[in-house]
Amino acid sequence: MLEEKNNLKAWLYLLPAIILLSIFTFYPIINAFILVFLENYRYIDGSYTGWTLTGNISVVVNSGLFWRAIQNTIFIVFVSVPVSVIISLFIAVWLNSIKKFQGAYQTIFFLPYVTNAIAIGLAFAVIFSTTGGLFNYFLEAIGLSPRVWVSTGASWGRAMFALLVFITWSGLAFKIMVFLSGLQSIDKQYYDAARVDAASRRRVFLKITVPLLSPMIAFITITSFIGAFKEYTAIVGMFGENLNPGVGRNMLITIVGIVYQSLGETYPGATSEAAAAAIILFFMTLILTLFNMWVSKKRVHY
């Protein structure tokens, strides 16, 4: 009797969250899985001509853009995540070790997090611009010749490089903050003990800091991988809606880019193609996350 009452109360408390999640998360997910199997679905009137098992998926996979999107996405995921995790870890350790102006530095490093991604993208586009850009200016200063990075004529490698610098940089703030809070919760006595035991700074970092921070590292890695799979805003911010340096289209398209572009089309079946791309992305993310969790089970010390 008592238990039932409590259950009712619990559901009542959960209700607002459940309603919102149902409308904006659960329903779209279920709907996406249904849309994939509809033939010539039109979202305007909801009409469709029949069912298909792999039709929409094969349209997406054979579209020509798909493999480029996969390549771009995977490149972004496997470069930006490890690089930004490692850099932010070092910055957090450094921030934690300085004594003067720690608060000021923390604020500076956190600012990117509260800045709009599109705005930062525009700023980075300026930094990487061919003439008058800071980056080319820097290259010249160290004796290298300037290159085209984000304008017409930029190679895929250069454009991707500029994009990765931007993505990595804008992801640092949140990671640094999480690592910093993790570092500050580590008992100082471990470091005193390591000092008395003559552990080198490298060993203290690898044998004490990293293992004791491993729950945070696992959390950040998994969420960053998921975030990187969904990358799209950064590309729009830096290269515009054509997802291409200068004129041309889709050089830097990602899977989410396909989703958005398909959603923008009105021909029959376009929405189903977007759903198909989304589901492909879903399974890629799922597999990698499961792998991540399997690794962290072995490596994370709670």
């Binding site: 008992d187 006595q189 471990y190 005193d192 003990a193 044998k207 293992p211 004791l212 491993s214 010390h301």
Partner: peptide
């Protein structure tokens, strides 16, 4: 140390 400061992950 008073709380021993044993490395918990080792």
């Amino acid at each position: 140390f008073q709380n021993y400061a044993l490395y918990p992950h080792m």
